[in-house]
Amino acid sequence: MNRSMPSGSSVNSARSAVHPREFLMWGFLVSVFMLFAGLTSAFIVRRADGNWLQFELPQAFAISTLLVVISTVTLELARKAARRNEFSALRAWLLATAVLGMAFLASQFYAYLQLTGQGIFLVGNPSGSFLYVISGVHALHIVAAVLAVLVTLYRAYRWEVHSKSLLGLRILAIFWHFLTILWLYLYTFLWWMH
């Protein structure tokens, strides 16, 4: 990971201040955003057609929201620790972030249980199906992000994350914060629509 970036970046004159790998992450986020833009606009189009079941959003979504917001704070604390080379703090905050991510997943799962308790299943009126699919696809991204946090944690144990090597952590943070914002958007959207 510590190698100099392929080709260009080290050899060509850099064109922008953004590291190419970070740039790739931004581009990836644009496509993730388009994926959800597609799903949520499908939601709107389908809802406008009528025959749409109204129901309460599960309360667990609120807990999930709280968890994911706290996790962005812990991740920022981890970055701060890394910048100051405070390694035990770095590991602790990374671990906290991973745990919060997993707690988010658990809370989403609990939300599904609440939904089925209300009689809303994946199969049925599309208003319920959309809820499952949209939050499920988001959860998949969180799974990937949690894995990335764990990898970073592993690297932190191998002394590979420090004030001179922050790129990986920065890219991870971009991804993580994006997923938080994405969830806030989805939650607001769903809340608005219900």
């Binding site: 260009g8 970046s9 060509n12 004159s13 922008s16 790739l24």
Partner: peptide
């Protein structure tokens, strides 16, 4: 993504 990044970042 690779094409875009290359064009924006690696021009001589």
């Amino acid at each position: 993504l690779n094409y875009i990044t290359t064009i924006l970042n690696l021009r001589t």
